[in-house]
């Protein structure tokens, strides 16, 4: 554990709390892509299959349980509790275009041909593109509530902070995980446009609006 990874994990935690707070205080999941949230459940469940077989630390286990539980809770909020505020007609990104290629990549690039290793690899690839339905929705509507942009910024910062963590681990432990690094760079890259607008508009007190 180093400071970058820890801050990244905190940022990831913060993003989830911000999202739940947004849904509960506005009593609405408007502007949130159900497809992205559903993919996150798949990401956490496939990645943390080792929860019952591998023990790393209390921290690691608690976080895994939290990510699985909170992502399921968000689906519940969107599909049951605040269902009328969820508008599937603007959440039109085709998720199968993400899952298919990620499954192929996972079969080619993995650290061992076992069910758990291939699913772990799939979860890494899938996470890297999981935000696309959400960003696509943002692009379509052209605007977002400020709280939603804080959620996205925290979520983007999480994987961005893992990059210095990987650099640090390379020099301090000689540890390299090429699958995570490649996918993590792609994942962070997808946020660059968003970050630009977030820093130049939202943090200057303006509303998040994309140019027409």
């Amino acid at each position: 554990m180093n400071i970058f990874r820890f801050l990244g994990d905190l940022s990831h935690l913060a993003s989830i709390f911000i999202l739940i707070h947004k849904i509960q205080t506005t009593r609405s999941c408007r502007g949130i892509s159900f497809k992205t949230q559903a993919v996150y459940v798949a990401v956490f469940v496939t990645r943390y299959l080792d929860l019952f077989t591998t023990f790393v630390s209390v921290y690691n286990t608690s976080m895994k349980i939290f990510f699985i539980a909170s992502s399921c809770y968000i689906l519940y909020l969107m599909k049951v509790r605040f269902r009328p505020t969820n508008d599937p007609s603007i959440d039109t990104f085709r998720v199968e275009y993400l899952v298919g290629p990620c499954a192929v990549l996972a079969l080619i690039f993995n650290y061992g041909y076992s069910v758990t290793e291939v699913l772990w690899s799939l979860s890494i690839f899938l996470e890297s593109v999981a935000i696309l339905p959400q960003l696509f929705m943002l692009q379509r509507t052209g605007e977002a509530e400020t709280i939603t942009t804080h959620y996205l910024a925290a979520l983007g910062a999480y994987r961005a902070l893992y990059i210095p963590n990987w650099i640090y681990r390379y020099f301090s432990e000689g540890y390299v995980d090429p699958i995570s690094v490649t996918a993590g760079l792609v994942q962070t890259g997808l946020y660059l446009d968003f970050f630009y607008v977030y820093f130049t508009k939202v943090l200057q007190g303006q509303k998040f609006e994309l140019p027409a």
């Binding site: 990874r5 994990d9 990831h12 990645r47 080792d50 591998t54 790393v56 690691n60 976080m63 895994k64 990510f67 650290y111 061992g112 290793e117 772990w120 893992y162 963590n165 540890y175 995980d177 995570s180």
Partner: peptide, 10 residues
């Protein structure tokens, strides 16, 4: 070598 990829990250 699976031990070098212990998946200790989240």
């Amino acid at each position: 070598d699976p031990s070098s990829h212990s998946h200790d990250e989240l």
